[in-house]
Design a protein around this nucleic acid. Structure first.
Lengths: 253, 253
DNA sequence: ATTGACCCTCACGTTGCGTGAGGCCCCATG
DNA sequence: CATGGGGCCTCACGCAACGTGAGGGTCAAT
């Protein structure tokens, strides 16, 4: 009999609450709703959760952060393949990212109007809040369960496949390089050629061919032209989105 | 007396509701709270809103979409320079974008675990829901009104300045080119050399120097390597993030 | 044996609206 | 001229997702 010792992982409400960031009251609430019931209840009446419940809570939080009502989250979790559900949700997240970008663009226009540019129409004013732009709830349900389900899932899988295998390590490297650059920036240091060189080398590796300094400077222009990049760099450190391209161009002489 | 004919722009509740996407009830609610009061009330008792109210509503919706309680939105709008407020909010949005990216990354890891990879720790499981990662409310208030205010605003301004003047038209052009490419993709057409050429020309223009086909193909690799791009392209049309780079590389031979 | 950190179960309060109920206004059409 | 059919008004109750005590057991350590 291939019986294996099972490691008993048990968390009390407080432990799970601290780990997940939700309140104890919320766990009580989810228990009352039947959305997340403890694995077992001790003789003392304490709720005790296991690994499965921890994972279930994570999934609940994913959907909750997307604005789904708890009742529907329960229905979702009740049936179907978890992997399918999460892949569909991944698609939704990507779309939400697009919506955020729209929001940024509209905000910029509003700022320009406030600074003297000509006014925009009522329609333009509210595009980012448009239900279609927003994470569209009904459309999503239709898409998830409707006839297009197969296509959506296929797209989702292709999507995952689009990240080349073995790339993860390279992304890690990029993150380290960027961290070094951010550190240099935050210390008020002049652009360190070493770190910029590392960045250029990384680009060359990604391209599979050399990246001369001028091409690197060209990349800087591209960074500036894409709001996504600006947002990402700005998230790393305020002002960084401006500093990095400047440094790249300066290094190219 | 430099008196100018003022164009009277007035909207009833229904008109403003349709334009903005909120419900009539919501406008009533905001009126009751004193958050958004009509410019005037007709003899018939109808609420009538003007341009200023329309702009104010947009700002309210910005903050609401960020999860701010209405009471604090009112307090925010009560004092200070609108441009300053919105620039601070812009910063917040950028950070929220970063949080979304984290969420995507964690989702991918969970999917890998479900597909057989080794499990992650409780901590990793919940990182994207961590209050610090989330649009952190208190921290934002401190940052907005605290001693770092000047620095934050300065960063925000530099930030805006980092988008080169006269660039807006070019972004419009890019959007049109991308729309054409998406249309080609959705029609199942083979990559049209004309549209790809337009894209390459755009890149060259942005770079301020020519962009040979191989460089264009290199760009494709870079698109694949950056989750931001994948997310953005995926938002345009599912699967597009995979198709475009493939087309770009194919065109380069 | 007592303290302090957890746990339990009610149970009412809060926010941000949804959803009628009941009634007035307006204008286009038979 | 009446008669809809929208659109507007004001209450007023309902609901989701918890927050926030109140009142009271549990547990490990001092």
């Amino acid at each position: 009999m291939n019986r294996v010792m099972k490691r008993i992982e048990e968390y009390t409400v407080g432990a799970l609450a601290r780990a997940s960031g939700v309140s104890v009251r919320t766990l009580h609430h989810y228990d009352a709703l039947g959305l997340l019931v403890p694995a077992r209840v001790g003789e003392n009446g304490y709720r005790l959760y296991g690994r499965a419940e921890a994972l279930r809570l994570q999934e609940i939080l994913f959907y909750r952060s997307a604005g789904l009502p708890l009742a529907e989250i329960g229905a979702l979790l009740a049936g179907g393949d978890p992997v399918q559900r999460l892949e569909a949700h991944r698609d939704r997240l990507a779309r939400a990212l697009g919506a955020q970008a729209k929001m940024l663009a509209t905000l910029d226009r509003t700022l320009q109007e406030l600074k003297g540019a000509d006014p925009m129409t009522l329609e333009t004013l509210y595009t980012p809040f448009d239900p279609e732009t927003q994470a569209d709830h009904e459309a999503w349900l239709v898409e998830t369960y409707g006839e297009d389900m197969a296509r959506a899932i296929a797209a989702s899988k292709a999507h995952l496949a689009s990240v080349p295998v073995g790339m993860e390590g390279r992304m890690e490297a990029l993150r380290e390089i960027e961290a070094a650059l951010v550190a240099a920036y935050e210390n008020g240091a002049a652009p360190e050629t070493a770190e910029l060189g590392a960045h250029r080398a990384w680009v060359a590796e990604m391209w599979g061919r050399p990246c001369p300094p001028e091409a690197h400077a060209g990349l800087a222009e591209m960074y500036l032209a894409h709001p996504d990049f600006i947002a990402r760099f700005e998230a790393l450190s305020p002002g960084f989105s401006q500093w990095l391209p400047a440094a790249m161009k300066a290094a190219a002489g």
